[in-house]
């Protein structure tokens, strides 16, 4: 074997070990709830816990609304920037990156001050308002991922010519976005959606400080008080994330193909 090949394999195996050893250790630990034998007891406890089901469902619903809000904000914005205002792209990209540099705790304190029950916009005065605020906050947190995914998708199609072709055939803006642009960047939107889903499912700070019954605070509570269940929960979260990634791959097979890049 040539030395270059050896080092390539060495680095690959080192990386794989770095990734898989903690994962295997977590799986192994999650199976040791019953003394002396491996069992799925920890998984049974977690999955059977009514609080798990309630918080998980709450976070799933919040994630769905976050994705919808994100798509409604990001797709038209990214499309318009690409079509008419390319000179504004650096500014918009900077704005979309802000949630990465401003900690969630700062955002949520801002929300509490701005939208407290004594403010002119008392979002936090009701459960519905607080949930809406959580969705808005999550949409902001997911902005860097959603915007980049959609913008990358738009880069693969000739936005201007397709828009003009639709316009000259009589289509208005709504029809153009819904029937021409969105279907052609659907996979990019789905990628952004799954990343948003992954962020929302595990998010702790916002949900906890807004006092929402979400999966993140439940997870934290479990980690603080139990031994084997958190490991089982980590593996479940890992499976959900990888399931989402696999779904992106499967769905991309059904994506509209461009004439220039048939495969």
């Amino acid at each position: 074997m040539k030395s270059g090949r050896f080092w390539a394999w060495f680095v690959f195996l080192l990386g794989a070990a770095y990734f898989f050893i903690p994962l295997i250790a977590t799986i192994e630990f999650s199976l040791r709830m019953r003394r002396g034998v491996y069992s799925f007891d920890a998984y049974k406890v977690v999955l059977g816990d009514s609080q798990f089901q309630a918080t998980f469902m709450f976070s799933v619903i919040v994630a769905v609304f976050t994705i919808l809000l994100g798509v409604l904000i990001v797709v038209p914005t990214a499309y318009w920037i690409r079509l008419r205002l390319p000179q504004l792209r650096p500014i918009v990209e900077f704005v979309t990156l802000l949630p990465l540099v401003i900690p969630a705790i700062v955002i949520v304190f801002g929300y509490i001050r701005m939208y407290g029950s004594n403010s002119p916009l008392p979002f936090l005065g009701s459960n519905l308002g607080a949930n809406a605020l959580l969705v808005i906050g999550y949409a902001a947190l997911a902005l860097p991922y959603m915007y980049r995914a959609v913008d990358t998708g738009l880069r693969t199609i000739d936005v201007r010519t397709l828009t003009e072709a639709a316009q000259i055939l009589g289509a208005g803006w709504g029809t153009i976005i819904a029937r021409v642009i969105l279907p052609n960047v659907l996979i990019a939107v789905l990628s952004g959606a799954f990343l948003t889903f992954a962020i929302v499912i595990g998010e702790f700070t916002m949900a906890s400080l807004l006092n929402r019954p979400a999966f993140g605070p439940y997870l934290q509570n479990l980690v603080a008080n139990r031994a084997y269940e958190p490991a089982a929960l980590s593996i479940i979260a890992f499976i959900i994330t990888w399931g989402c990634m696999s779904l992106i791959q499967i769905l991309s097979r059904f994506a509209p193909k461009s004439a220039n890049r048939p495969n």
């Binding site: 199609i157 003009e164 072709a165 289509a171 021409v180």
Partner: peptide, 17 residues
């Protein structure tokens, strides 16, 4: 979209989907 004009583009511009 109000002109009732047909146009063919250099890059075909067929909707890929």
């Amino acid at each position: 979209n109000q002109r009732n004009v047909g146009m063919v583009f250099q890059a075909y511009a067929l909707f890929p989907n």
